[in-house]
Amino acid sequence: MKRVNNQKQKAKSINVFRIVLMVLFGLLMTETGTFAMLTIKANHDHIKIDFFYHGSTVSVRGEADQGTDLVIKIASSEGSQLLRKKGRVAGLLWMNIGNLSYEHVPSLYFLHSTKNLAEILSSDERDKYSLGYPALNRHIEIRPVESEEEKSKWFNEFVKVKESSKVYDTSSGKIAISERKGRQNYYILLDWPYQALQGNYTATVYAVKDKKVVETAESNVLVEQVGFVKTMFNMAMNNGALYGIISILVAISAGFAVGLIFRQGGGAH
């Protein structure tokens, strides 16, 4: 008798659970206006910088409506960067001739799209979401520059430096698309450079239709120093005196140790 009552109660709970699910499902449909939602998942989203770290890979995958093009952006938060600019001195020698301050720039910027950005998005939309180098150029500030032409020149040089460090990259046509049950699955595998510093990076996918962004979804990639690397970095930055003394003592000890090893040979310089 007791067992029958338990079974009844269990069936009752399952029904309640189903009703709640249906309500939530209904709310979801009302909110988005469509059954299919844009999704994104960054695989390997917690990268640990340990002593043997030499970069990593990050795969981004998800689902989108059929008939939409996709743009995937992975970027750090925006900040300011100070760089030295080289120029000719006395018309002959290349030297550092001053600093340029770059404001509102991400330290890492990856942008990958299913097709050429200019073909699938209007200029206004690209500017609105800072999609592509020309849009990023219009978004950031560079000081001191005297004209838009000069700004473009130093923006292009900035991109060259960042691309050589592998922290800026763009491509079109590299996102793999496969269709399944009236939806499209997308996937891209990216090399994550060891030059990317610790911090929080945002991966955003933009679904694009009729030259407009119709939907976006976000995911995060956390890069964090751990263990010995973290300890050494923190000591170097926060306890420079102790760090300096340890560095000197280790060097002196190593010098003496090797001197003693070679003692038999005379070791004179």
């Binding site: 560095s247 000197i248 280790v250 060097a251 002196i252 190593a254 010098g255 003496f256 090797v258 001197g259 070679f262 005379g266 070791g267 004179a268 310089h269």
Partner: peptide, 19 residues
């Protein structure tokens, strides 16, 4: 920092032969 190590080794060796 690394020159500290190399020159420790060298100075020690030279000091031993009075140079």
């Amino acid at each position: 920092n690394q020159i500290v190590a190399a020159s420790t080794s060298g100075t020690y060796a030279h000091w031993k032969v009075g140079n």
